[in-house]
Design a protein around this nucleic acid. Structure first.
Lengths: 156, 156
DNA sequence: GCGCCTGAGTTGGAATTACCAAGCTAGCAG
DNA sequence: CTGCTAGCTTGGTAATTCCAACTCAGGCGC
């Protein structure tokens, strides 16, 4: 996404989020980190087939954005190397991945069936994303409306 | 996103979704359509400041993907023109927008406060996205784990 | 020490994509 | 039959991405 969005765009948190997440490869890197526990340069590269210069750039941006943290690791008899692990902010992207995943399962189905299933840790029971009210009661998607908040500027 | 993702990538519905949603501007166009009821070429162009050739391309792809529908409209004393309205599949992207919105509000805050608030249609009560189990009970995000589904290929 | 291996990157050049200003086209009003 | 407007094209430039090749640092076998 362009780096210097204008001011009204900056007021939208979707636009601000997409500055980092909307770049090519960014969300796929987060997917690898969050869903498949990848941490290393070579793993991301091999799984995604991404060019190394682009991967370097994206990892740096994700670290800058606080989504990944760069750490040292050392395997037995090896030298110190770098790895990239999800931060709290990175883990908080799980609903984003789940929402995209659910939409794709429904509206861009493949013949293969789902590649990822969201479950409850203890019971293994399936879990899905839904809109809920303050009391935790589930709502139908059609009953949700979006209204402009305090920082919204522009015509309705 | 590259058009010809390899086969293992094609098995992932996140990757398939991002083929259309991951391109620059696509999600912002959906945001304008879903949250602000924009329908016209000139509206998207004015709101987003997007180049017209890119907008032409993105609208065509979103129509192809079944997210927008191209329709004729005619205002009094005007000639017939085109507009782009959300389909059911397009409306089903609301959780994706909400998830990105919520993440941005929390992890990329601005000094302006939120620009969009998700509410219940009838009561106007605030609404949020959450993971729920089959009985509609809300779960903590940390209690959700993702396991490989039937189509998953690759090392854990 | 010397070369070799491996993971994590650079570097250089071609190809794709986006940006910007300008122009085009249908139909309707006057 | 001129102007106006929404919805696009076109042409040239700038920015991104792709790809292959190369570097760099440390540990290991010899």
């Amino acid at each position: 996404m362009r780096e210097t969005a204008d001011e009204t765009e900056q007021r939208c948190s979707i636009a601000r989020s997409l500055e980092v997440l909307g770049q090519k490869w960014s969300l796929l890197i987060v997917r690898e980190a969050a869903l498949r526990s990848r941490t290393r340069f070579a793993e991301f590269r091999a799984e995604l087939g991404i060019a190394p210069d682009v991967l370097t750039d994206r990892l740096a941006r994700l670290v800058d954005a606080g989504i990944l943290e760069r750490r040292k690791y050392r395997e037995a008899g090896e030298r110190e190397r770098e790895e990239y692990v999800l931060t709290g902010a990175g883990g908080a992207l799980l609903p984003v991945l789940a929402a995209i995943n659910a939409w794709g399962d429904e509206y861009r189905p493949s013949s293969f069936g789902p590649a990822a299933i969201y479950t409850e840790r203890e019971t293994g029971a399936p879990v899905r994303l839904a809109f809920v009210d303050d009391d935790g009661r589930e709502l139908d998607r059609d009953d949700v409306v979006v209204i402009p908040g305090p920082s919204f500027i522009g015509a309705a």
